[in-house]
Amino acid sequence: MARIKLSFPDEVFTFSTEMPVRITDINGANHLGNDALISMLSEARAQFLVSHGIQEADRDGTGIIVTDLATMYQSESFFPELLTFEVGLMDFNRYGGDFVFRVSKSASGQPVALAKYGFVFFNYLRKQVVPIPEDFRARFA
């Protein structure tokens, strides 16, 4: 199987936050587990949206749903390192686009991971994909 190779332009990253690697994030190999990293990516995405005044789900039942995920691990991370999560948006289509992430060690800048996940807007009440809300498109696309 071909290896995933991710690369993003620097200017796509418009938000940054830091999170510590918790002891509960460590796996059997004694480093940050992939499941914990994915949870941290979701937290970074939520912080990005909140920083722009956007809630995960709207009153009409419309929210964001993740459609796919790709992660390229670059180095190990350990408890209690502080990680920097840079977040951006790109590759918009009618229904969504991609959240992109660059994760590095805050102290040294050493890359830890690159990731992206596709998303679409989804109306949870109607159980269907819906077009990107115009205010979201105007702000980011």
Rank of each mutant, 00 (worst) to 15 (best):
L89N: 06
F8E: 12
L37I: 03
F92L: 06
P80A: 11
N93F: 09
R59V: 02
V50I: 14
S108A: 00
F79N: 11
S106N: 11
S16W: 03
G63K: 05
N34C: 07
Q55H: 02
T24G: 09
N34F: 11
F15S: 11
G118A: 06
I23Q: 04
I23C: 06
L41H: 09
F8I: 08
S108Y: 02
S16E: 14
P9F: 03
I26F: 08
V112K: 07
V103A: 05
G118H: 12
A36M: 07
G63F: 04
L83D: 06
L49W: 13
Q74Y: 01
L89F: 10
E86I: 04
Q110I: 00
V87A: 06
V87R: 07
L89R: 12
K105V: 09
S7V: 03
F92S: 07
S104M: 03
A107E: 09
H31T: 12
L82Y: 03
M40Q: 14
T84A: 09
I64A: 03
L6M: 11
I54A: 09
P80F: 11
E18D: 14
D91A: 13
F8W: 11
S51C: 13
D35F: 04
F15I: 08
P20Q: 10
L41S: 05
S16N: 02
D35C: 11
A115Q: 04
L49F: 15
M19V: 01
R22I: 01
T14Q: 05
D10V: 00
G88C: 08
G33W: 03
R94C: 01
V66M: 14
L32Q: 10
A29L: 14
I64Y: 00
F101D: 03
F99P: 06
G97W: 10
E43L: 10
L6N: 12
A44W: 08
G109F: 01
T67I: 09
L41T: 07
V21I: 07
D25Y: 02
V120I: 14
F48D: 12
G97S: 06
G28R: 05
R102C: 05
T17V: 11
S39P: 01
T62Q: 08
P111T: 02
P111V: 01
T71F: 01
T84W: 01
